[in-house]
Structure formats: C-alpha cells, structure tokens
Amino acid sequence: MPTVQRPLSPHLEVYRPQLTSLMSIFNRLTGIALSVGTIFFVWQLLAAASGPAAFASFQGLAGSWIGLAALFGWTLSFVYHLLNGVRHLLWDAGWGFDLGTTYRSGLVVLVATLALTVLAWIVALIVWGA
C-alpha cells in the first residue's frame, strides 16, 4: 500500500513537562524495570528449589550492596506502579478525571510511594537484623 505523507499533530516534544505526563511516562518506565526485576525473584525460587548451597549464594547476592541497591530501586518502582495503577483503574471506572483531581491524586501517589517504600525498608531491615 502506498504511504501518504500527511501532516502529523504536534507530539510530546512541543509540551512543557507536566506532573501528569511525567507520571504517565514513569508508569511505563517502572513497568519495564519491574519486568526486568521478575528475573531476580524467579531466580530466588529456582535457587530454593535447587538446594541449600544455591539458595545461600542467592541470599548472599541479594544482601550485597549491589543487591540491596537494586532491591531498593525495585521496591520504589513496585510501590509506584501499584499505587499509580490503582489511580489508572479509578480513571477507567470514571472517577477523578478532572484536571484538579488528577494533580491531587498524582501528588498523593508520589508522597505515598516515598512513605511506603521507606516504611517497607525499615521493616525489612528490622526483620533481616533479627
């Protein structure tokens, strides 16, 4: 089929970055990050199924500085994607789609993401130390 060159409507680059558009992009980026992270958790299960030695070396890697840094990033992505996903589902159900509410719910998601991630790590480090 011949391609017809029609003018295109302005795309993302003509807009000033806004909280709403940035949060939409972050939802995708965290989704991609979480997809990569699933490999880590399947690895944990495989190691546990393989035996004590494999599991111990996995736990060693997870507890290293690189492992902990990756897990922290993963937690941040997970909590964000979960909370913002709920925001998306509420929009799909017809709730909160006016401009004021999208900004307010966006701020709630950002603040709650930071708070829950820090809380999760405080609890995890206490459990780990105990």
Partner: peptide
C-alpha cells in the same frame, strides 16, 4: 519483607 534474609529451612517451610 517478612522473610527478608530468611535461611534455606525457613524459606522452604514457608513456600
């Protein structure tokens, strides 16, 4: 989180 740093025995018993 509840199984952070769990050893092999605990993890297996849980799963």
């Amino acid at each position: 989180i509840a199984h952070a740093g769990a050893d092999y025995r605990d993890f297996i018993a849980w799963v």
